[in-house]
């Protein structure tokens, strides 16, 4: 399962001690590659769009899944997102990167979906991959909080994390998903959400404070 999410989708910041690979990779060679694929897709090359779908499905899956906490809804919503992107591709002029553009579509459609779905929805979580056992952050947490986390199995941890995320407002959950789980930078989130960087930072601050209170037994 480790191989499913590319490095760009499993971002880790520099301050965590692991090489940062998130959107910076997309900004460099990824952006040029995207531009070429987009131009080919706009010219009618369906294989080029397939490549874009293949490339962005894992990234967008992570975003939608962590917003909805339902894998079936995530798969359906992703179909809608790519279908909309395909229909709108002719109008994409390249003023922003394809990365920002498709994320904006995905975030907007997910937020609209969540509004329609309502607050209480069925939770359907993906399995936690075995890689978590070797994750330095997991090890760090388990060693730092030996008395608490060691007593909690991974599934219990997953449930607690998910419950805490779902307690957040949609705006707060969005920034936490994009920043902490997806590894996007403040300026990228600002462009995707169409808000200032200050707003992004402010939302993150309050979201982290809330999460800390929800999960205080893990982070003491």
């Amino acid at each position: 399962m480790d191989g499913l999410l590319p490095e760009t989708c499993a971002p880790v910041r520099a301050d965590s001690g692991i090489m940062e690979t998130s959107s910076e990779q997309t900004k460099g060679g990824g952006a040029a590659e995207d531009r070429e694929l987009v131009e080919r897709a706009q010219a009618g090359d369906t294989r080029a769009f397939d490549e874009l779908v293949r490339k962005y499905t894992p990234k967008l899956y992570g975003m939608v899944y962590n917003m909805t906490s339902n894998r079936e809804d995530t798969a359906d919503l992703l179909q809608e997102i790519f279908a909309k992107a395909y229909r709108s591709l002719k109008r994409f002029l390249g003023k922003s990167s394809f990365y920002t553009w498709i994320y904006s579509i995905a975030v907007n459609m997910t937020l609209n979906y969540l509004k329609k779905r309502g607050r209480y929805a069925k939770v359907s979580l993906d399995d936690v991959d075995s890689g978590i056992q070797n994750d330095p952050e997991f090890i760090k947490i388990t060693t730092a909080n030996r008395d608490t986390v060691r007593e909690v199995n991974i599934h219990e941890l997953q449930k607690r994390l998910n419950d805490a995320m779902m307690k957040l407002s949609e705006d707060h959950r969005t920034v936490v998903t994009l920043y902490d789980i997806q590894g996007l930078q403040h300026n990228e989130i600002s462009k995707i959400l169409g808000v200032s960087e200050g707003t992004v930072r402010s939302r993150l601050f309050y979201a982290h404070r809330l999460l800390q209170s929800y999960l205080e037994d893990f982070v003491k």
Binding site: S16, L215, V219
Partner: peptide
């Protein structure tokens, strides 16, 4: 700490 904890959610994969 809380960010590290939340980051573990990336191990939930399809």
């Amino acid at each position: 700490n809380i960010q590290s904890l939340i980051r573990l959610k990336r191990h939930e994969t399809p």
